[in-house]
Design a protein around this nucleic acid. Structure first.
Lengths: 338, 338
DNA sequence: TTGTACGCGTTATCAT
DNA sequence: ATGATAACGCGTACAA
């Protein structure tokens, strides 16, 4: 059955500590014994039992992931699930595993920080987080290694798309198509990405000296297709509709398009629409969606490397933002002004 | 900082074992001490450290999930990610957490079974699995509690959609629309669901005494839109195209539709198409997709309950298949024969 | 270079 | 009803 380090030691006529040192690459051991032990370990497939290892050492080789702090969509959100996949692939290469952080163990509600201590995880990835959640604040301001693929906070290392670049690409693209009247639809502002993109839009519009008014800006109160649909219908009531919209999420954009169409407004003939994300369906939609592509796999990869670096040296913990370039993909939902 | 059970005991003038018993609800303890301890534990937020607990006891309150044994799509597949979400919600209620099973720890490749022993997980959910993988076989034939939301094997408890019912609903629906010439497009047969649906199709067609030929059956060699697209173009070359198709996955169905359209074949005017899954986009596609809806949340929930039952009494382990009803949702991709 | 002995925090067994 | 003590399996000073 499963061997313990003691049995392995016995069979090799060595002491457990020698085995331990060799397996973990510590201490000074003679070339021969090292080779002998390594060979035996390999063929007998010995692996130290996880809980015992964690209990007696500092490292757990486990990374906690906070996934549903802000919304309940969980694994079903394509943007985040892709980041997670890439993050996982990357940390696995170094021997880490991931566990989903929950806020209760059995009947005991506990804070994220307590959970981390309890599990002795080596670090945490905040996939989505509510910056107003005290549990998040407590975790981030602790000395625990944490990176985020979403939120920005003091003392937190964040990796996400260069949204300023994205919005700028949108504006340049719109101008290039010959439009002057630009609008934006964004999601719930509690999400950093939505808030930021709107913010950058306003900043850049001023910078470009392009006039815009409050009726060019829409904020949906949800992440889904249906919320976009509602906004689409709402836009149709406007008697001075922008010529082109940036919708800061593909899924919402799909809804907006259908909402507009339901009121007899054609896309792209009457209004052009640019999405954000480039999820799989963007290119299969009708009309296919011009969109700002996020490099999700790069985000996951960078987050992984930053976190592992932080785990190696937690004293490096400080606020930092790593921006990943985005790219505008032109498709059918936008059309040159005639 | 974080308290140990010894400190808690000291502060209450009790012994660690007494605290342990109370926290875990075992042994005979007087009403008063129990209440006193419980109160203290609550306010001091004491929670037993995970690794120590696992080391010294049998249970780990952890469930392992095998997610990417068969394909690399991982979290990005909507069908499975929704099952996982519902599974997770359900086991969490009972105090379990989930971890993703990987096949290596550090540099050591290990079998699923070894991993489970190493982590002492209480049970395993096989989300997708290759029945020909020796590692899967080893795990399933062990005495370990395992359930699957996908594959069927000897000695394994499986929970998934009633595909026979689904295919039958398709055929009845097709006949009801006035069609006689039915076809099917399925995915890689290595996946149980695709294999089964094709199998049921053939069985039922014979039972209904409906003629069909090999050119009415298509097998794509991938799970994606692109693979469906290829099949769609291929179908168009056929000089005796079925009037209606069952495509055993929505994503592939989307591709098939576009593939057909690319060759000038209209859906549903020339050919009707029925999908399988009812993923979010089915209703937003153009044309919106008639499809067999799978009850993913019920699958996850049932799998969770079965697994927890098995964990409570592993001797119950034996082959069993729990089928979850499906439902045909009619939309625009199908049309009555004129 | 290798081995001894102890500690990690908890649960379980057996006394009391 | 409660407590003392021995595992659980491993890592690590420290001794040899």
């Amino acid at each position: 059955m499963k061997k313990t380090i003691i049995e392995v030691a016995k069979e090799l006529n060595l002491s457990p500590s020698t085995i331990s040192k060799i397996v973990n690459g510590k201490g000074r051991i003679s070339k021969e014994t090292r080779a002998r032990v390594l060979a035996y370990v390999k063929e007998s497939e010995y692996v130290a039992m996880s809980s015992a290892r964690i209990l007696s050492s500092k490292k757990s080789w486990t990374i906690g992931v906070i996934y549903s702090d802000i919304s309940l969509i969980g694994f079903e959100h394509p943007h985040f699930s892709r980041i997670l996949q890439s993050f996982m692939d990357e940390v696995e290469k170094e021997g880490y595993e991931i566990t989903m952080i929950v806020s209760k163990i059995g009947d005991n509600e506990m804070t994220y920080l307590d959970w981390c201590r309890n599990k002795k995880v080596d670090g945490v990835l905040i996939m989505m987080g509510n910056i107003n959640n005290p549990n998040i604040q407590q975790l981030v301001s602790s000395s625990f290694p944490v990176v985020s693929a979403d939120i920005v906070m003091e003392n937190l290392l964040s990796v996400f798309s260069d949204d300023f670049m994205g919005v700028k690409q949108f504006i340049d693209f719109a101008l290039d198509l010959g439009f002057q009247h630009l609008g934006i639809v964004t999601g719930p502002l509690i999400a950093r990405s939505f808030y930021n993109r709107l913010d950058h839009f306003q900043t850049l519009m001023k910078e470009y000296q392009l006039p815009y008014q409050s009726s060019d800006i829409y904020v949906s109160d949800g992440f889904g297709f249906g919320h976009g649909f509602t906004i689409g219908k709402q836009i149709a009531q406007n008697n001075n509709i922008p010529e082109i919209f940036l919708v800061t999420s593909d899924v919402i954009a799909f809804g907006v398009i259908r909402g507009l169409q339901s009121q007899g407004i054609r896309v792209p003939e009457d209004v052009s629409v640019v999405g954000y994300d480039d999820i799989d369906f963007a290119k299969h939609y009708v009309p296919s969606l011009t969109t700002i592509r996020q490099n999700t796999s790069e985000i996951g990869k960078q987050a992984a490397h930053h976190l592992m670096r932080l785990i190696a040296d937690p004293s490096q913990k400080k606020q930092d933002i790593q921006l990943i370039p985005v790219q505008l993909i032109e498709r059918e939902s936008t059309k040159r002004k005639e």
